[in-house]
Amino acid sequence: MSTFQLKQRYWVLPLFCSVVLFTGCQPKDASQQSAEAKTTNTEAKAEQVIPAIQAKVVPVKLAKPEACEAEGCTQYDIQTVETNLKWIDQYFMDRIKKTDPIAFSDQPNQKVRLDDDAQPSLNQSSTYVRYVGQNDNFATFAMQSYSYSAGAAHGMYHQEFVNFDLKQKKRLALQDILVKGTDAQVLDALYDNNLNWLQEHNIEKAKLQLSDNFYYGANGLVFVYPLYELASYAEGMSELTLPYYSLKKFVRPEYLPSLPQYPEH
């Protein structure tokens, strides 16, 4: 190989490498950028999809139909929800087991202590969970409980509404949905919107408190109060409604249902 041919060969090699490096660093064309952007947007939207709740009530299998302690025996009836969201199912099962651990115990029943000629008493306890409804990213369930102690004049019942943020996968307390620092204003609005009923039951504003037991009703946020707190046993659990149009300033936007734009008068 001549000296000229050798120089020519070494001159072509760096030029070739430069072309390769330059080509590799070229910016992506518009079509490639567009395709990648669409993929990113699709993935982001997929993460934001809120599942539609599918739920049915199912009986909970217990180790024994009646559980006995030294004080007496209790017959349990427990039913919960089975949904397409396992974390919700687990939430209720954890709550139920924590409330009635003896119902799930596999230990033998204790012997009931009885006075002479006394008959063993049988108490009753039931817990039912049901699906109420969904509004975009939040869903509501009801947890009903009833207990009766043998010999009592009547049983006691309670209904607790449980609201979930489906995006955050957590239960919502009242303080989670209200704008910070608006509690007093919400209480004033609640009292004013239920003034007639509250006055009929001799409930002064100073005696009324916001209840953390609430649900989204057809016309507003419904605050639920336990037996005897605002009314007699015969009247049942009391419910006070605060219309949605009164809540716009007090509820965080993500937890306020989509509402019509009513004309201002």
Rank of each mutant, 00 (worst) to 15 (best):
A63Q: 13
H158L: 11
A44E: 09
S105N: 08
A103L: 11
A206S: 13
K61S: 12
L174D: 11
P27H: 07
Y157G: 15
A67Y: 09
D100C: 07
A30F: 11
A152T: 03
Y233S: 06
N213R: 01
A37C: 03
I96L: 06
C17G: 02
V19E: 00
V162H: 03
V222L: 04
K111S: 09
F104Y: 08
A152D: 15
V186N: 03
E254K: 12
E200F: 13
K169N: 06
L247Y: 01
Y262A: 09
P253E: 13
K28E: 11
L210S: 07
F4I: 11
Y131V: 02
K7N: 10
R95A: 10
V49Y: 12
S31T: 12
S238D: 07
I78K: 04
P59H: 08
D212T: 03
K86V: 11
P226C: 10
E235I: 01
D183E: 15
S121D: 04
C25W: 13
F250A: 11
V12G: 00
L247Q: 09
A231D: 15
Q8G: 14
L208F: 04
P257K: 05
A218K: 15
N219L: 05
V20L: 14
Q79F: 00
Y91S: 00
N137D: 11
D29N: 13
N213A: 08
P27R: 05
P263Y: 02
W197I: 13
N219C: 00
Y233A: 09
E66W: 00
Q107R: 15
A67S: 15
A103I: 09
N202I: 03
Y128W: 05
E264Q: 10
Q8P: 01
H158K: 14
K97E: 12
S147K: 13
S2P: 08
D89I: 02
M93L: 13
A173W: 05
M237E: 15
L122R: 02
M143E: 14
Q175K: 14
H158C: 08
Q8L: 14
R252Q: 14
Y233V: 11
N196A: 12
L85V: 04
F164C: 12
Q33W: 04
V60S: 03
A35S: 12
Y148W: 01
Q107W: 02
Q90H: 12
Y216R: 02
F138H: 07
S149T: 09
L187I: 07
A52F: 08
L230P: 04
